[in-house]
Design a protein around this nucleic acid. Sequence first.
DNA 1: ATGAAAGCGCTAACAT
DNA 2: ATGTTAGCGCTTTCAT
Lengths: 341, 341
Amino acid sequence: MLAWEVAVGVTISDVARVAGVSPRTVANVVNDYEHVRPSTRQRVLDAIAKLGYQPNLAARSLRSGRSGEIALMVPELRNAYFAELAEDVMRAASSHGLSTVILLTEGEKARELEILDGARARSADGVLFNVLGLELDDAIRVTPRSPIVLLGEHLFGVPTDLVTMQNVEAAKTATNHLLEIGRRRILALGAAPEETMGSATLRLRGYAEALAEADVPYRSELAVAARTWDHAGGAEAVRLAQDSGVEFDAIFAFNDALGLGAMRAVADGGRSIPADVAVVGFDDIDDARWSTPSMTTIDPGRGQIAAIAVEMLIERIADPEREPREARTPFRLVVRESTAG
Amino acid sequence: MLAWEVAVGVTISDVARVAGVSPRTVANVVNDYEHVRPSTRQRVLDAIAKLGYQPNLAARSLRSGRSGEIALMVPELRNAYFAELAEDVMRAASSHGLSTVILLTEGEKARELEILDGARARSADGVLFNVLGLELDDAIRVTPRSPIVLLGEHLFGVPTDLVTMQNVEAAKTATNHLLEIGRRRILALGAAPEETMGSATLRLRGYAEALAEADVPYRSELAVAARTWDHAGGAEAVRLAQDSGVEFDAIFAFNDALGLGAMRAVADGGRSIPADVAVVGFDDIDDARWSTPSMTTIDPGRGQIAAIAVEMLIERIADPEREPREARTPFRLVVRESTAG
DNA sequence: ATGAAAGCGCTAACAT
DNA sequence: ATGTTAGCGCTTTCAT
């Protein structure tokens, strides 16, 4: 008889029988219950090892009402920001004994709603939701079924725990940096006029505030949309801007992928970075550090966002009635070659 | 009474009561069982909508023995290759009505074993395992508890389904490309002498074969290890090589992150790409297309790997006795600026 | 410190 | 085409 044949379908009762105790005692050992006599504990542990017992998570979850899982709703993983965020969340959750399930929303409103209300999100003990598609109008009617912590901006009619980066302030800092190195015609790359609450709106606001305080006129032709917030979208938007004769001496890209794509398009246009065009991104993904030239960007405190969000969620799960809180992580301007001129 | 209060804890019996049918009929509707009278189906659907019913996945899984989940074991998500792979797998699984749980192994042998044998992997209906740390020696004793498809190379004593890229052939093609553009001192970046079965070994083999066929001597000082297979590791290794006076006119990096880091280090060393040093990567992650210069690389057929692996796993789950199969995806050399000289 | 028994919500076997 | 019943494996309540 092969090892795996004895291991498949080993239950707590099997372990109990081998150890000569009741199922109850096995459960006590497995769940680190204190009051188990050391000798008993050891016999149970031996039986567990011998049989290769692993708890049946479905049974545990059904009975206890807790799955030991949290769900992380993000638009995609292809974008390094979300991949890194997901890793950070998984590690933070893991350090609290929780596992993480990633649910991809594709950044689409319909899928966000569907997933938020779906069985997977409900079966999680709590949900971390990085909102992208939902707007205030849609969300006001939504009431989440699980404890939830939002990553990003407020939504929902009900007050909600929230962890967010300081979008406006960070965008202002990024723009100020470009102003300080003497740039006056700064492309705001990623502007989304139809959006009302998301990152695009907030980062554009910070951009505009910085200009206003520096008495530099806001020019609408410099607020450029990107079809997608990735390399291709950034490159395309900058190419379009160049072709249409919009003049600019700097780019503030609303995320790093846009910025990297933009740098590529600028180079293709025969202009040099940072001499002709300075570039600042947002996110501080790994790639920004290694591109040529390396890219100045905003570190929005992603690691902290993950850690705080997981902690907040755990506290929310523990006490559904507690006062909702809001955390804003410190950000940091990381100056690199793309603005070092 | 708020909406969510009625929605929490709605069971199949609640729906049955409201619809005036038995739980069995509700289950039939939920699981798309054919023989349900349309009028009955509609009444059940109405009740489901009214109550906001969502099935309890733990209960379903406990009873049916199937969780509707597959597990994907990968070392990390930070590396774009794995992030993109994970997305591809999630989409492929989703198109078959399965959800995906990502389990991070950190590329460490111990964690790979622990996770492979752990409760989360067992509770999945099947496992997709991208091996990194396990070596043949360790794995020969391992017998997975769930249906499994390996991504990468063979392991385990038992024959196993396998989907793999053509590491040797692709590496040979990459190296040939560099030879064809006249390079003779090609750094093999990512070589891992102590490894016996993994990507590093196979890609180095392809590299060596290409050299041999071109009658170019294999020089061990050109086979360079990287501490980590990321940007930092690539940059560091190339810096070291440069500092130690190793001469090279090309780099074959064993993955794209290494290649991008290498390009950065080459540029820092004052040499130009591709004129002085040509660079080829491996993986064809998005970034390789957008770097400056854009990077020639091997497209290993990642999308197909994901799709085929999920299909193989589904068939393996359906029939544990079927003959194990092996699929090798076609690869493609993608020539870009880093070798266009 | 441990045992006995109930039941979480669902699906599958056995009904009709 | 649909109802009835049992039981998946665990944790929890009530025991002692």
